[in-house]
Simulated assay, not measured.
Amino acid sequence: MNPTIKDVAKKANVSIATVSRVLNNLTGYSDKTRQKVLRTIEEMGYQPNMIARGLISKRTQTIGVLFPNVSSSFSSALLHGIEEFAYNHNYSVVVCNTDEDGKRTLKCLQVLREKQVDGIVFASEQLKDEYYKVLAATGIPVVLVSSETDHPGIPYVKVDDRAAAYDATEYLIQKGHRRIAMIGGTESDPLAGVPRVEGYMKALTDNGIPFQEDYVVYGDFGFDSGCAAMEELLSRSLDITAIFAASDEMAIGVLSVAVRLGIRIPEDISVIGYDNVKLAEMVAPPLTTVNQPLSEMGSTACEKLIDMIETGLIAQHTIAPHHIVERQTVRTLD
């Protein structure tokens, strides 16, 4: 017969409430007591009955996470932070792939509602009115990450995309570059596509460099689109010295095409990316990029969500910091 929480409390010589508080990472006991309870749990092989706990608390200790592309390096980094924080606070995570352009978002929201998740982290996608109406009807707490909204009661965690793109472009300008092309993300994307191009344009204007429309091409933030965008830029016979790509995956696509065509990076063309995913330091040459703290953003979003679940209070928005990570794909012009 499996040991119960009552058995653990009796053997550890503490109250059932204390065992419960230790299991849920709550306060109100000493570290010595915590160690004793955890040691007893391990010795007895106690496994909390999540169903029974859910019946008492009316919670499932489960949160849902929605991504438009689960397999991307960007999503993986965010998910790492979400899962780490959730695990440390005794929550499980259910991940849904909403597909490109949110084709399956409403279906995913229905699935998460049926699974009775306690809250939802909505990542990297615009919270359309139709999604908001569904969420508002369920009353399930929601936190956005790498997204934002004007809808009330929904906090978000993201970087300032315009400011980060501005800084990336100005970094190239400070290195002596004036003929700077940009590979933007999805052209109609209001979250990261449009703001990053706007940041690029403003940096040019503020430094007295005329904006040239044919210096901008668009991808979809993915590797293949970065390759296609690089080929498009080269086909235009532009006398560019640097490229700012709105994602690391697109920047790596630029590097791939450059290697194939014998273009030297950074001797012939400098490249800067955006995100600072793990692959950015693994490619050759290692990619200079804009760091947004993806894992930390995921962790912060999860922390806000669990706090909302357990207190009923609405969390505040968080603008995460960004900075340039210098590696080996940008050179200083003489």
Results as ranks from 00 to 15, higher is better:
1 M>Y: 13
10 K>E: 10
11 K>E: 04
13 N>L: 15
15 S>M: 05
17 A>I: 07
22 V>I: 12
25 N>D: 13
29 Y>V: 08
32 K>H: 11
35 Q>P: 05
42 E>H: 13
48 P>S: 04
56 I>M: 08
58 K>Y: 11
60 T>Q: 09
63 I>F: 15
66 L>V: 12
73 S>I: 14
77 A>S: 13
79 L>P: 04
86 A>I: 15
89 H>G: 05
96 C>L: 10
97 N>A: 15
100 E>K: 10
108 C>R: 00
111 V>K: 02
114 E>T: 06
118 D>W: 04
124 S>L: 09
126 Q>M: 02
127 L>S: 08
128 K>Q: 05
134 V>D: 11
135 L>D: 09
136 A>C: 14
145 V>H: 14
148 E>V: 11
150 D>F: 10
156 Y>G: 10
158 K>S: 15
164 A>P: 02
164 A>S: 06
167 D>Q: 10
169 T>C: 09
178 R>I: 15
181 A>Y: 00
193 G>R: 00
193 G>Y: 00
201 M>H: 07
203 A>H: 08
204 L>N: 01
210 P>W: 11
212 Q>I: 08
213 E>R: 10
215 Y>H: 05
216 V>P: 00
217 V>D: 00
217 V>L: 06
219 G>N: 01
225 S>C: 04
226 G>P: 01
229 A>R: 09
237 S>N: 03
238 L>G: 14
239 D>I: 12
241 T>R: 06
242 A>R: 00
243 I>K: 02
243 I>Q: 01
249 E>Q: 03
252 I>C: 07
256 S>P: 13
257 V>Y: 01
258 A>Y: 01
262 G>H: 05
264 R>C: 13
266 P>K: 03
266 P>Y: 00
268 D>F: 13
274 Y>Q: 01
275 D>C: 03
280 A>W: 00
283 V>F: 02
288 T>F: 00
295 S>P: 10
299 S>K: 12
299 S>T: 03
305 L>S: 04
308 M>E: 13
309 I>K: 10
313 L>S: 09
318 T>S: 11
321 P>V: 11
321 P>Q: 07
326 E>I: 03
331 R>S: 13
331 R>E: 14
